[in-house]
């Protein structure tokens, strides 16, 4: 019994069709609970007023924007090393989801920034890094679209993902160097003193769990679609040959 068993498309389809409703349901429950709790049952911040409540969308989507890229990197490495097609397709499936989370983080950030900083956009290091991350996602998706042969596309996008990760990290530090910024420090950290207080913290955790599960749901659904598309291609190819 090995974990690689799930890399078999058939096994993956069986397991995911069983798991998908649970993951999706749990994600809906967490999101509804977390967002309602966060929006209506937490006090206003003494400085930021009710605008602070956008963190329940902003922080989880920003986290997932980065985590999605990390997941793509891991899936790409698994494809390059072990040649499991499901892994390559999962990386392909995750990219638009990650891009959407990045867009949500940018838009909610702008909505929050307007009342707080008096501007929709500032060339702050965090904001700039997210904009650059958007470009990386776009390039990755465009490369997938441009190459016809699925295995070649999987290989080349995996190489791009690896090299891109290094340069994305470099860009993050370069941007920090370039401008010190307006953005507040991380909302969550291991250091208790830095953290937001517990009343905000618990509903935020619930929201984060909801976003992680939402990401999982979307990636599972999209990977299943990709597997079916590949299956369809194989069937059509077989029909042509027969």
């Amino acid at each position: 019994m090995s974990i690689w068993e799930y890399a078999n498309p058939k096994k993956f389809m069986e397991t995911s069709s069983w798991a998908l409703p649970w993951v999706a349901g749990l994600s809906v429950v967490c999101l509804i609970a977390g967002l309602i709790w966060g929006f209506f049952f937490t006090p206003d911040d003494f400085r930021q007023g009710s605008t602070v409540k956008i963190i329940y969308l902003h922080v989880p989507s920003a986290m997932m924007a980065i985590n999605a890229w990390v997941m793509m990197l891991v899936a790409s490495l698994i494809w390059l090393i072990r040649r499991h097609h499901v892994s390559a397709l999962a990386a392909k499936a995750a990219a638009p989801v990650g891009l959407t989370f990045t867009a949500i983080a940018l838009v909610t950030g702008a909505l929050w920034g307007q009342p707080m900083w008096g501007t929709w956009w500032a060339w702050d290091p965090r904001l700039t890094s997210f904009l650059i991350l958007t470009l990386f996602y776009l390039g990755y998706i465009a490369l997938w679209q441009a190459i016809e042969d699925p295995d070649t596309a999987a290989d080349l996008t995996s190489v791009l993902c690896m090299v891109g990760s290094v340069f994305a990290l470099l860009s993050r530090y370069a941007v920090n160097f370039w401008n010190q910024g307006l953005h507040q420090g991380a909302s969550l950290s291991m250091d208790k003193k830095e953290n937001v207080s517990d009343v905000f913290w618990i509903p935020l955790l619930v929201c984060i769990a909801g976003f992680v599960l939402l990401f999982l749901t979307l990636v599972l659904m999209r990977t299943r679609t990709e597997i079916r598309a590949r299956r369809l291609q194989a069937l059509l190819a077989r029909e042509r040959l027969a």
């Binding site: 498309p9 058939k10 389809m13 040649r83 097609h85 299956r231 194989a234 190819a237 040959l241």
Partner: peptide, 14 residues
């Protein structure tokens, strides 16, 4: 069997 070997067993798994 043109499909079986080239797809690395991908197709067979369904």
């Amino acid at each position: 069997h043109p499909l079986s070997a080239a797809t690395g067993g991908f197709d067979e798994a369904f």
